[in-house]
Structure formats: structure tokens, C-alpha cells
Simulated assay, not measured.
Amino acid sequence: MAAPASKLLRNFCITLVLSLILLVVLVLVLAFTVFKPQRPIIVVDSVSLLDLNVALTDGVDLNLSINVDLTVENPNKVAFEYSKSTAVVIYRGEKVGEAPIPGGRLPGKGTEKMNLTLTIMGERMLGRSEVFSDVVSGQLSISTLARLAGKVKVMGVVKIHVVASTSCDLIIDVKNGSFGDQLCQFRTRV
């Protein structure tokens, strides 16, 4: 009579192991299909000049503040958690201004609006010899870059690191105190 009990125990163990394997396969299939992480998207809604003061005296006196309105979209079914970051203003390859972006959590399928004020640090920009000729020509070319790095947790277990960024190449019409050409694009990376 001992043989049927051990046979029953063996069949139970085989069934349990096969069930666990099937469950793991099912979770993996769901993780890489239905819950596959997608890249968050940062869209620049608008860019405007808050303050532009230019004076040509012995050199160039320049004060510049830019307002950038962003929308961050999370296409995932799960939350996107991002760490604090910084948006920057770049003039001829050198960082000349910045604004903090606080860390946060964007729920699944959520959208968040952000408003950033980027202030140019005049002393950094004025150290460049090209700034005088750019201001005299009436066009000042700058770029903005906002980057969010974070993670998406699939099934609450698997963490996938994601980076989303957006950049704008801007030409400021110094005489009119407005923007000329604007080219904004977003980039994402998983």
C-alpha cells in the first residue's frame, strides 16, 4: 500500500512544479507584452522670454530669463518614478543657465505639466568672445535641455531604467526681444 501513496505524492510534486513553471512563464509573457515598459515623453508646449535686457556699453550687459512649459506623458500602465534633475541653457556648447526639476512620480497613463524658469548666468555667457558679435548682429542662438531619468517597475518587481529628454534650439531676436526660429525635439531611451 506504500507504493500508491508515494505515487500520489510524486504526481502532486510534478503537478506543483509544472504549475509554478507555467505561472513564471505567464508572468514573463505579461511582463514583456502587456506590461512592456514604454518610454515617457517630454513635450515642449511653449517657450517664452520673461526678461531680456541688453546694453552695449564697454562690453555687453545681458540679463535673460526663459519660461519653458513642458508636458510629461507616461504611456505605461505602471508608474514612472524620476529623480530630481536640472534643465539647462546652453550657449555655444557651454552651460550658462539652469533650473531645478524636482523628483516625482507619474502614475500609469498619467500626464504632468511642468513650468520651468531658466535664468542665464550673465557672467558665464559674457566670458565668451562671441556674445558681443551675436548681440550686435541681432541674433543670439541658445539651446535648452531638460532630462528626466527614472525607473518603471514591471509587475512591482522588475525595475527598468528609463531616460527621457527634450531639447530646443532657439534663436533670440535681440532687437525685438522675441524668439525667431525654434526647433524642439524629444528623445527617449530605455
Rank of each mutant, 00 (worst) to 15 (best):
K151L: 02
I160D: 01
A79H: 03
A55S: 08
E73L: 09
C184A: 03
V163H: 07
V157I: 14
I171H: 10
A146Q: 02
V158A: 01
P102K: 10
T188P: 11
C168P: 02
R10S: 13
A31E: 08
V154L: 04
S165R: 15
N76Y: 00
V88E: 08
G108F: 00
I90D: 02
C184L: 03
L18F: 08
V47N: 05
S85C: 10
L170G: 04
V43L: 14
L148K: 07
Y91V: 00
V60W: 10
P40E: 02
M125I: 15
K175Q: 12
T111I: 12
V68R: 00
S85K: 02
L118I: 12
L148C: 05
F132I: 15
G108E: 05
T117C: 01
G110R: 06
G127S: 12
L145T: 02
I66R: 03
S137A: 15
V174K: 14
E123F: 15
V72G: 04
K159F: 04
R39N: 13
L148W: 07
N76Q: 03
A99V: 15
A79L: 08
M125G: 11
N115F: 04
Q139T: 10
L30D: 07
M1V: 09
G97Q: 05
Y91M: 01
L18H: 08
E130G: 04
T57G: 11
L62G: 00
V78H: 03
V135T: 05
F132A: 14
L126C: 06
D45F: 05
N115Y: 05
D134V: 02
E73H: 10
Y82G: 00
I66H: 01
V25F: 12
V157N: 06
V72H: 03
H161S: 12
V154T: 11
N67C: 14
S48H: 10
Y91N: 00
M155N: 12
L30W: 11
K7T: 13
G59Q: 08
N76A: 03
V47F: 07
Y82M: 04
E98N: 13
A149P: 01
G177K: 09
N53H: 09
V88M: 10
D134G: 04
E112Y: 03
